[in-house]
Design a protein around this nucleic acid. Structure first.
Length: 263
DNA sequence: TAGATTGTTACCGT
DNA sequence: CACGGTAACAATCT
């Protein structure tokens, strides 16, 4: 489920309990703890601490407390539920309901209230003081010079596909598979193009499109609501010019693009 | 039923 | 050594 858009909704939800104090932490599935963190350590570090701020860097949610910062990653299907309100109303799979059996970690708030990590597929992780420096600049505010740096060839040649680079969280934080395909479709750029082959005009257009798509889809309600997302299927057609979309694996992920206008 | 999946990471080959 | 591609992870949905 979550790319940066969904995590931004979770962040906004967490903001509603800023100032509250953490109570007990129930780790229902130790699998959700990023090694070497233990349930006892998490509880001891967090309980009695006040929530100071809810930040986001890419897909990583950061809960600053009066003690350590709690890092939450949501994997493919993680959702944050705060006081019974899910961060995302519409889940990808209509039949997938928030189920008590999928609660992995519950942060109680003193008095009443809670933040709950619900994650059917169990790829989500809780950590303490995560290494934010390992992430590139956040895609929502990417500037031209930052994008140029993110796509610059590390070695001579620079044959890496532009899509692979855009997905590399250490270069640029926040974009996932659906969002990247949507952005490249909007910008008219072939996902297989070597990242280093983009000229200044391409880079400028792409940087603007990254920010624009994030802004629009945030308003629309999530990463799966792009103009081309519903056409990601056999027989899918480009909404712009009617050409059949092409499918291939690029950057290790299933990729759809329009062979007519993405160059 | 077989195949696919919005994310991250260990591993392997170049 | 650095980089890039791949498989694995886990559970569910189409």
């Amino acid at each position: 489920m979550p790319e940066m858009l969904e995590v931004e909704y979770y962040r906004q939800l967490a903001e509603t309990v800023i100032g509250r104090t953490f109570g007990q932490v129930d780790v229902l599935d130790a699998h959700c703890l990023a090694p070497p963190l233990t349930a006892d350590q998490l509880g001891a570090a967090v309980s009695g601490r006040r929530l100071r701020a809810a930040r986001r860097q890419g897909k990583l949610l950061l809960l600053d407390t009066s003690g350590p910062t709690v890092g939450l990653r949501f994997g493919m299907t993680g959702t944050l539920v705060v006081n019974g309100r899910p961060g995302v109303e519409r889940l990808q799979y209509s039949a997938l309901r928030l189920s008590e059996s999928h609660v992995r970690c519950r942060f109680h708030l003193s008095g009443r209230g809670e933040l709950v990590l619900v994650d059917p597929r169990r790829f989500g992780r809780v950590s303490l003081d995560p290494d934010v420096a390992a992430l590139g600049p956040d895609a929502a505010r990417i500037r031209l010079d930052e994008l140029r740096r993110a796509l610059a060839p590390v070695r001579a040649g620079g044959g890496t596909a532009v899509k692979a680079r855009l997905l590399d969280q250490s270069k640029l934080a926040g974009l996932g598979n659906l969002l990247v395909d949507e952005i490249l479709w909007q910008a008219g750029i072939d996902p297989r193009r070597p990242a280093g082959s983009l000229d200044d005009d391409d880079l400028r257009r792409l940087a603007k499109q990254i920010r624009a798509s994030i802004r629009i889809l945030l308003r629309r309600g999530g990463s799966h609501l792009g103009d081309v997302t519903s056409e990601r299927r056999p027989g899918g057609v480009c909404p712009r010019d009617g050409a059949f979309l092409t499918q291939a694996t690029v950057g290790g992920r299933t990729t759809w693009w329009c062979p007519a206008h993405q160059r």
